[in-house]
Simulated scan of single mutants.
Amino acid sequence: MEVITYKCPNCGGDLTFDPASGKYKCEYCLSSFTQEEAEKANPKAAEALNGEDDAAGAQEASDAQKESSTEETKGETEQGEAVVYTCPNCGAEIVTDATTAATYCFYCHNPVVLSGRLSGEYMPDFVLPFKISKEQAIEKFLSFTRKKHFIPKDFFEKSQVQKMTGVYFPYWIYGGDFETDYIARGRKVRVWQTGDVEYTETSIYDVRREGEVRVDGLSRNALNKADRDLIECVQPYRLEEMQPFSMGYLSGFQAEKRDIEQQQIAPELKKELETMARGAMRNEANEYISLEQEKMNLSPKQENWRYVLFPVWTLTYPGKDGKVYYYAMNGQTGTINGDFPYERKRALLTSAVSALLVLIVMLIGGYFA
């Protein structure tokens, strides 16, 4: 498996994607580059993305570090559900999960992309790049959590919030054009009064509606190990900002490859599509007081599936109660979701002090009265 790092053409430092500027930035000489410039300076990344022969490219490399990196990469081994790869920067062996596609070396912090995880059938069609930087994410997160009461003080420590990590999670997006054939029994009720007598007339109609429905943007998380509820709750994303996939967007972030396929979630998404189409047809027949015995057929004229990486800032906090608290932030819009720790002793002490103050005020008031 090819291990890719993006290097600065000016100083050789690591390039990472900068959400604020949308460019690739070198933290050493502070140079910045467009996507095209970064890929031109790192041709091996472009070769991996295009599926070219990595082995041939490695043989042509004259740089000693590249040759060493290629030999070490060949030594990568699968260990059950984990994978060991060799960092091309410092030579350390790093263990990753079987679904990890981009990460960084825990020793030298060199960002790396494991291209084999995102090639061939596992290559994403699109990516939603991070729009919120780590500094912005921390600021938004602290601003949000400081409004909460009785959160442990160490929750706000710099060493804790600096653990926030940007992760690209895999998603399937489903949509297309569909023909609908809707059949139901509709009921209309007419009420009128003649003299002192009130009359009610109920009419039953055969209802049929045909039409076309266009749906796009039905999405599902494609990773089993993710906290699905947590990640789903930071949606929606602005899908119109999707970009054709490039591995450069992953540099400096973590990324996961999918382990859930289309056929596993297709029934769920198609059921959601049917519910939406049924609602649209009901709106077309809104002159009836009720619709019963509904039947609907959906015939796809065109279906499309897209494999996309969505940006999420994640943070964990090991609570004193033994529970690990997880938080997620939409890396594009800043929407936050999570379960916050609660310091029970502080809450009880505050309640006790408040009750004591009320009692003192009442006693003083009664004394002077």
Rank of each mutant, 00 (worst) to 15 (best):
P267M: 04
Q136C: 08
T34H: 06
E287P: 02
L356Y: 03
W192E: 03
D53W: 03
D53V: 12
A369F: 12
D125I: 08
M281A: 08
Q79K: 14
F245T: 07
E268P: 01
E261M: 04
D125E: 06
E201H: 12
Y122D: 14
R306M: 11
G334I: 09
Y237M: 12
Y85A: 02
V358T: 15
V167A: 07
V95S: 10
Q293I: 00
V3S: 07
K345R: 14
T316Q: 11
I231T: 11
I183H: 14
G217E: 04
F150D: 06
V308E: 09
N304Y: 10
R278K: 14
S62A: 11
S219Q: 09
Y182D: 07
K163D: 15
F178L: 02
R228H: 08
V191P: 02
A101N: 01
F368M: 12
T16R: 13
D196R: 13
K131E: 10
T86A: 10
E93W: 04
G116V: 11
Y174F: 15
L30S: 13
S251V: 06
M362A: 14
S32F: 00
E27P: 06
I151G: 04
E78S: 09
Q65E: 12
R209E: 13
N89V: 09
V112A: 05
T96N: 03
K257E: 05
A41E: 12
L118C: 05
Q243R: 15
V361W: 00
T96W: 00
Y24R: 08
L230R: 07
V312G: 05
K270Q: 11
G217C: 12
K74E: 05
A328P: 13
D216C: 00
A184P: 09
M329W: 02
P311L: 02
G338S: 09
K40E: 15
E274T: 09
Y205H: 15
L142Q: 11
C105D: 04
E240Q: 15
N283Y: 08
I360V: 15
T5Q: 14
I260L: 10
Y107K: 10
G338T: 09
S133Y: 01
S68A: 13
L348V: 15
T333L: 11
Y342I: 01
S21Y: 00
T314F: 02
V127H: 01
L363S: 11
I151N: 00
L128F: 03
Y85Q: 03
A38Q: 07
L269I: 05
E60H: 10
F144M: 11
Q243P: 00
G331M: 07
